[in-house]
Amino acid sequence: MSHWQVLGVRSGGPCATPLPDFDRPTLLVFPATAEGEALGGATAAANGAAVLGRITSLTREGQVLVASRATHGGRVAVRLRVARGLAVATVNDMPDLDGEIALGAPADPAPERIARADRRVALESARIVLGGGRGLDEAAFAQLERIADALGGAVGASLPAVDLGLAPVSQQVGQSGKFVTPALYFAVGMSGTPQHLAGIGSATRLVALNTDPGASIFRVAEAGAVADARTLLPLVLQAVEARLGNSLQTPAGPVRK
């Protein structure tokens, strides 16, 4: 057994929590959210930890921990090796853990919080973003909004969709729009241009829906479906609501790679 232990960190509330004394080299893994990054960075500073960053893979090679992550906007991958002490990392999806600890952090100074008029989760902090492209119409964008509401996610849009007036510019994701790092990005009715993908964190999982089986988005998505979004989105909404409501579920269809 490797002597490294990998512990997931969850928020422990607003009271500062000192780290316990670990009797072996320890990697603390924080969720790749704004809060997780803030807590991870503060923990690294306070404890002299090595910083692995937002890792995409993790292996234990004997006494050494090896992690990979993307740099240069996802165009380069680096492998980092750490042999001892304490290390911190952030992840979109938790790896196999040896345990979990809670760490608190005071919100100091505490900001003033004002509810937004639209009450919708901000693109910047959403765990799921549903991105619409020019393959959609207004009704399909409305469906995306409903699915996002059900999931507690946010709706983004490609530049062509914004240009068509299907979404406001504040929802534009991409090189000339916002940069988002959700756990999952559902790309609907868009081809997946490099300019749009530049606005999505390289560790974000992509799922795609497009009528064109040759669309380049399918080359970078981990899962997808070829279908007309206007037909499928209402069914996706029903299925999401059914799953969230623990209703009887329709079995997922056959998959192919």
Binding site: F218, A223, G224, A225, V226, A227, A239, T250, A252
Partner: peptide, 18 residues
């Protein structure tokens, strides 16, 4: 890319699960 085939309901169910 793992493609969801089948009926629209099955495709929707697969996407919804993710």
């Amino acid at each position: 890319c793992m493609m969801f085939d089948g009926s629209p309901e099955q495709q929707a169910s697969g996407l919804a699960a993710l």
